[in-house]
Design a protein around this nucleic acid. Structure first.
Length: 245
RNA sequence: GCUCGUUA
């Protein structure tokens, strides 16, 4: 079962969801147990492909054969609905989770928070952030990255800096994605000096910038009309062996 | 073996 699970997961990551579902049916033919994890993998594959209807069919099927959807199943589906802008359905599922006594975890909150951040709904995002704190669910790097992102997009970079600091104070170790989100906020703000300061800071922490970091900086410089400096970024990238895209 | 975050 684990062998199949690993294979199915691998197929899905390659975007070969239909091959994955063939394997899924093959394992059934062989009489191997199909756990919630394997269902989740297949559901995730179809969610990524945007075929939510198929994903839902598998979820209904797992219920039918007596496998309880797990917190991850719900998180998966809530996330997919949110990405499609089907917020009402996502919220209905959250309600269903609460009714069933499932305890929302950090991932659930992160999905909701990020969903609202993507919509630029700062109020709602922070309302959920407060709620998770109130319920004793510890925010993660992902939570903070989403909040830093939305603050940057809302021209509230100073608040983004504060959130970053708060995350560090809570003992979270900032990673590349979190740094990139903060750098982007300052680039959007036109504060390239601060953006490069953060770059220096992350390198001091032995976190190597990636193409997202450089793309972000390039865009920031171009927005200010500093095309020559932007051109230097390209050289810096090749010097470091990062492929420009 | 399964879920969430950053640029374009």
């Amino acid at each position: 079962s684990y062998t199949y699970g690993t294979l199915i997961s691998g197929m899905c990551k390659e975007g070969r969801v239909d091959d994955a579902s063939k394997l899924f049916h093959e394992m059934r033919r062989r009489g191997l147990a199909q756990s919630a994890a394997v269902y989740n993998t297949v559901i995730n594959g179809y969610c990524d492909k945007g075929e939510l209807d198929v994903a839902f069919r598998y979820r209904d099927e797992m219920v039918r054969v007596g496998i309880k959807p797990t917190l991850r199943t719900y998180n998966l589906v809530v996330h997919a609905l949110f990405m499609e802008g089907r917020n009402a359905e996502a919220c209905a599922l959250i309600k269903e989770m609460e009714e069933k006594g499932l305890v929302l975890d950090a991932v659930t909150y992160n999905i909701l928070i990020n969903g609202y951040c993507k919509e630029g709904n700062v109020k709602k995002a922070f309302k959920l952030f407060q709620e998770m704190l109130r319920k004793g669910v510890h925010p993660t790097k992902v939570t903070y990255t989403s909040l830093i992102y939305v603050l940057g997009k809302s021209s509230r970079v100073a608040d983004a800096d504060r959130m970053f600091k708060e995350a560090v104070e809570k003992g979270l170790v900032p990673d590349l994605v979190m740094y990139n989100a903060l750098i982007d906020g300052h680039c959007a703000d036109g504060n390239m000096e601060r953006a490069f300061e953060i770059l220096t800071e992350m390198e001091k922490k032995k976190i190597a910038p990636d193409e997202v970091t450089y793309n972000t900086l390039t865009r920031g410089l171009c927005l200010l009309g500093k095309v020559e400096e932007a051109r230097c970024i390209l050289d810096e990238m090749s010097r470091r062996g990062i492929k420009p895209d």
